[in-house]
Design a protein around this nucleic acid. Structure first.
Lengths: 102, 102
DNA sequence: AATATTAATCGTAATATTGCAATTAAACAA
DNA sequence: TTGTTTAATTGCAATATTACGATTAATATT
């Protein structure tokens, strides 16, 4: 039905398609690492909700979490983030036709 | 709850979060202009479904449609596509911390 | 005017997403 | 061991998305 590339682009885009996940990622970029509870406070969503969003980001490989005692430290997965960027840039930076056709 | 920027990123990403819309956009890039019916055949979804996806893309301003007799010609809105890219690049190209923290 | 062609809209069923309270699990502290 | 803290999981209600048949609207053709 769709090419693998189209499905991959859609999957990455979908995970960015909710402001809570955008906010989580921006926070991880900003402070480098963060605990689930801190994100819950910072963003203003209940802990299970944040946990769910973190899971989706982790499933796609964009973040990783390490158990630190009773907490879990989350951070951007640099390697996979870079790979994702390649895919998204390829899509976003397609050659635009020189002139509007209509 | 969320910043305007976060909401804007999420809105753009959301519209890319379905392979049908990715396919539509790639087709518009490829052939420069396309009729709704042609997209329906090319992509393999019913005409009302394509029409609905086109509407979402149009609402965000990423494409525009011009009535040509009994058909409607769709194409990428170059100006808005460029603006969208600025927003998305700002998000995707954030400085990644030098080292993994966990 | 009657017919044909194309796209938009409506209505609706199926599915997916989101958010959270309640609970469970895991690690630490006393 | 017993409690404490933090995060994951479960269950569920509310909402949103997706797809399409049927219909409508608009333009063109005969």
């Amino acid at each position: 039905m769709y090419t693998e590339q189209q499905k991959e682009i859609a999957l990455f885009a979908k995970v960015f398609g909710h402001p809570a996940r955008v906010a989580i990622l921006q926070q991880l970029f900003k402070i480098d690492a963060c605990y689930c509870g801190d994100l819950s406070e910072e963003i203003g969503l209940a802990q299970p909700t944040i946990s769910q969003h973190l899971k989706e980001l982790k499933t796609l490989g964009l973040i990783k979490g390490t158990v630190e005692g009773v907490k879990v430290c989350y951070c951007i997965d640099r390697e996979n983030w870079t790979k994702m960027k390649t895919v998204m840039h390829q899509f976003l930076d397609q050659d635009i036709p020189k002139a509007d056709c209509c």
